[in-house]
């Protein structure tokens, strides 16, 4: 069958994104779910590549995996005490059931939205989309989206200071 190499890789990446999610959701050990999360992020950046969003994929890699996931691990290591890690992570059956119901409900609604929208297949229009998006993104960022760019920087600054203050103050 003429399934091309590209589609197989796409499948792989998609699987790499979706499968660890189960671990994130159900694993007993918080560390395992952290690692699972690492693979999901990796899968996502792969998907970005497929979308020709190379800058985005890299940003995903650096910030999500490099930043967020590391912080996450820090948090886990600082807050877990080795012996009862297992219990803390146990997922209460009753709560899981409830979550399942809500998720199924959400799934139903969104599925309905998909179907109601007629689900037109639309393929990627080749050509109009620049291969290297960084320059364009940079230009775009600093021209039309200058205000969000500045706001984001202020936000980051605030977050930086805020987290220091919270971390210190709570000691007293």
């Amino acid at each position: 069958m003429n399934v091309e190499m590209k589609e197989i890789v796409f499948f792989g990446v998609a699987a790499m994104t979706m499968v660890p999610c189960f671990f994130v959701a159900f694993s007993r050990n918080i560390l395992h779910s952290a690692f699972a999360l690492f693979f999901t992020f990796l899968g996502a950046s792969g998907l970005y590549f497929f979308l020709d969003a190379d800058f985005l994929a890299l940003v995903q890699l650096i910030i999500y995996i490099g930043g967020v996931l590391v912080l996450l691990l820090f948090a886990i290591l600082l807050t877990k005490n080795i012996d009862n890690i297992r219990s803390t992570n146990a997922v209460a059956a009753k709560r899981a059931a409830a979550a399942g119901v809500v998720t199924a409900a959400m799934f139903g609604v969104i599925l309905y939205a998909f179907l109601a929208s007629g689900w037109p297949f639309r393929h990627s229009g080749a050509g109009q989309y620049p291969a290297v998006t960084t320059k364009a993104l940079g230009k775009l960022l600093l021209t039309t989206y200058l205000l969000p760019f500045e706001a984001i920087s202020i936000l980051l600054l605030a977050v930086l200071i805020g987290s220091l203050v919270i971390a210190n103050r709570s000691v007293k």
């Binding site: 189960f22 992570n89 959400m106």
Partner: peptide, 19 residues
């Protein structure tokens, strides 16, 4: 969608804040 649903599921069912 899958990611989103699993995200929701995890947020709701996890007992640990990090979860």
């Amino acid at each position: 969608l899958f990611l989103f649903l699993m995200g929701i599921f995890t947020t709701i069912s996890r007992k640990n804040i990090i979860g």
